[in-house]
Amino acid sequence: MTGASGAPGIGVADLRRRVPASVQTASSLRLDLTDWAARAGLSLEVTEAVVLAGYEALVNAVEHAYPDQDDDSVGLHATVAGRLVTITVTDWGRWREPPTDPGNRGRGLTLIHKLCTRAEITATDTGTTVAMTWQLDEIPGRDSPTAMRP
């Protein structure tokens, strides 16, 4: 692919996947997303944020969207247009509100919101879409003290 040269995203094809939802496929889609981010020429920081937030959304769909449904698939779409990266994770199950005890799922959602410029969760009776965008000129979380490395 030619995306690594010049501006991010020039010439990189969208990543589109729809697979049976499982912890295994979530990990495999995570690697697909990492490869796509490299082809798109995204910086290390944006790549880390995109892959982690995308993965947390996938795991959320896998673990919580299908209590008793037949359509158990999960979809992933990654695209970059101009300075905007958009990762969308879709499931066709029923959204369940996070438990009041934050626990692990609460942390996953916290990461999704903190890692991207904007996260939008749309839940309907027929499924849930988590759309995450990154404005490439800003790096969310950069103001955190982690920027200091040893």
Binding site: E45, E48, L52, R107, T110, L111, K114, L115, G141, S144, P145, T146, R149, P150
Partner: peptide
């Protein structure tokens, strides 16, 4: 934990207040 992969994730989720985290 140190750096963006681990420490930053611990910080973003607020668990650095709960766990004893060291740089090395």
């Amino acid at each position: 934990a140190a750096g963006s992969v681990t420490l930053r994730v611990l910080e973003l989720t607020g668990v650095t207040g709960e766990l004893a985290v060291f740089a090395t």
